[in-house]
């Protein structure tokens, strides 16, 4: 399970960084989103992977910590998702404003002179 998660994070982060370095604003925002997903999975993984273990203590299972998964990273990842969502939306607005004001989707607001 760890290796699958590691590959998923690696693929997402790699494609995210590639897109982030591209010159078009849409590619940048996709890159940021992919990187955000990679980071969210990473936070999740930092709580150690365990399948079928609930984060909240219930009466039937008892209080042995080994039966439960760490609840803190789940709370963190939830916060991170919300914040990431908001900032992506904000960046989308800036992207559209830039497109409207400059007439191009280049991140510098003007096309580079290609031969």
């Amino acid at each position: 399970m760890e290796i699958v998660l590691a590959f998923a994070i690696g693929t997402l982060a790699g494609s995210g960084i590639y897109l982030l370095l591209r010159p078009r604003t849409f590619q940048v925002i996709m890159g940021l989103s992919l990187l955000g997903y990679a980071v969210n999975l990473f936070i999740f993984g930092m709580g150690r992977l365990q399948s079928g273990a609930p984060p909240v203590i219930d009466a039937v299972r008892g209080t042995d910590p080994a039966l439960y998964t760490d609840a803190v990273p789940q709370a963190l990842v939830l916060t991170a998702i919300v914040i990431g969502f908001a900032t992506t939306a904000l960046f989308l607005v800036v992207l559209l404003a830039s497109r409207g004001l400059s007439g191009t989707d280049h991140v510098d607001g003007r096309e580079t002179e290609n031969p």
Partner: peptide, 27 residues
């Protein structure tokens, strides 16, 4: 808008780094 966009991208990326750092340290 142009300068703001650069500012936002750099800081969003820094925020992602912050998350990785916080998760690693918590881990």
């Amino acid at each position: 808008v142009k300068a703001g966009m650069h500012y936002i991208v750099v800081n969003l990326l820094a925020s992602l780094f912050f998350l990785i750092a916080a998760a690693l340290i918590y881990g």
